[in-house]
Design a protein around this nucleic acid. Sequence first.
DNA 1: CTGTTAGCGCGTTCAT
DNA 2: ATGAACGCGCTAACAG
Lengths: 333, 333
Amino acid sequence: MKKPTIKDIAKRAKVGIGTVSRVINNSGYVSEETRKRIEKAIEELGYQPDPTARGLVSGLTGMISIVVPMIRTEFYDRLVETIDDFLAVNSYDTVIFPLLSEHRLQRFSSKGAFLYRTDGIIMASMPVHKLFDGGKVPTDRPVVLVDMYSNRYDCVYIDNVEIGKIAADVLLEHTANLYVLTFIEPDSIFTSGVFKKRVSGFKNVLRNNGIKFTKKRIFHSELDLHYAFTQATQILKEMESFPAGIFATCDLFGYGAILAAKNLGIEVGRDLFVIGVDDQSWSEDIGLTTVRQPVEDMSTTASEILLNRITKGKSCKKTKIKFDPIIIRRLSA
Amino acid sequence: MKKPTIKDIAKRAKVGIGTVSRVINNSGYVSEETRKRIEKAIEELGYQPDPTARGLVSGLTGMISIVVPMIRTEFYDRLVETIDDFLAVNSYDTVIFPLLSEHRLQRFSSKGAFLYRTDGIIMASMPVHKLFDGGKVPTDRPVVLVDMYSNRYDCVYIDNVEIGKIAADVLLEHTANLYVLTFIEPDSIFTSGVFKKRVSGFKNVLRNNGIKFTKKRIFHSELDLHYAFTQATQILKEMESFPAGIFATCDLFGYGAILAAKNLGIEVGRDLFVIGVDDQSWSEDIGLTTVRQPVEDMSTTASEILLNRITKGKSCKKTKIKFDPIIIRRLSA
DNA sequence: CTGTTAGCGCGTTCAT
DNA sequence: ATGAACGCGCTAACAG
């Protein structure tokens, strides 16, 4: 009644355990005939190799950790799912570690944490240099960063300053009368600073084009549609002239802007131009022009790098791959 | 340079490995003197017992899985954190498995999934009977359900029908002119049916009190504040008389109702009474009366049951613990 | 091609 | 009180 072991299979198939091991791992030569016998025995007994025992021998677990700040936001959903799928194909199990609180982070700071018992770690959007002592993730296992730059680790990232620049370029095609609707990240060790970077890229372009742009044209919102709607309404009411353009530092804010415009009878795409960031699943429906991050590509690339590190070992040189943002043009700009 | 093993410690402390094992596990007798020596060696070499090897001999992993439909909603945040803390105190590592997609559920349906390699599983809000073949979680490890009833497994739950009843009772203290604002769950295997249950409990009470209540008084919203606001506005505009009461099947909808009322100049707590469900962290700020689920208590209880199962083994009788909803009275009703 | 053997790191007897 | 030997389930190396 207990779980069958490799011995049980060997006995039943009347072979040595070595041979069984060979067919399980598809290594070495096994005659077609005995292989069949063994496979039959495995089938009949419902045998499954014990990962723990395998781990003891190989020092590997067949698992990979993904650390993310949260899930159930589109960005991380897509990121995790892509990585998960890719690794599954390469027969790795993935374990997801959502950061829930600073409290929980503490446990991640111990070398013994389960997080680090896997064969490798992918960290998404984590400001590693701020998060850990000495900026070093407490593990000897390979670590790859996604959506975050680092000179210490392999990383796959996107330049958020560039996102702001692109947004500016697109809006400038229509008008130089521009506004920004953005979010002020609470100042914790978790903050990645992406919003600030996007805005700074945006301002750079305006400055280089000699366009006057003051703080008064920057509006803030919480990450909540209703709030964004209210703020966007505010912007629209304060506008001195049309046409105008709004750079929404995330699609949610772009949504708010479009709703506000509709509510006030302002025609989007003619009187008002809006560009968002992230290309959420619903952005197409509302016709929002947006700057997309190639999440899937970044995720896959990160996974590949990690697998290479695991199998090929650690060469000194760290890979840094920068991805380009993609403009998705729709009717709002 | 490699990780030290128990042997290295034994050698350095000039004892046998058995003794080292004894001090690590605090089992059996060890003279104070040799214990000191061994502890010193452990310290000096930075020795940490290999969990894999331990697992191989004990059959245990020291880990427990928590399966949740999502995180970063208040309910699950609190649930996971409570369990996590409780188990950490009992020196268990917890691994969180967020259900990301139906796709991912598939992998959870295989007995070999990593999810089931832990010492026990806590599943939150999962309609196990719909999710798995034969309604059985594919594992022999102990399984405990939170926020979900089942006759097959130990479970800790709350009766959502009762929540609706309580809401009705509270509102009836003020008026019999009642409305409902609720959510229609998309019909997938994930749906737990809580919203429907809450509404049915609510209707029961009205029926028993001989109060006429037709479908026309039930309004629907998506799980989004702006949407709720819009729908609540609709309700308020269609109301025939005041005072009136709204049962919001979650606090978010209650928020929408309060906002809508304010927007229309209707005084909450006099002309309009609102009761929500879940007691979100912001509910107090907006003065929303609500029905709270004792998440923390349920989580702790579930954890205790699981630990009992693991250590005490499986007695046949399954524990079913029903928790009572708690009314939190604030100024909205 | 295949059976046997030696560990992997640790907990647990069982003598001493 | 403590050391040595055995085995957990498996892989890898070796001898046939």
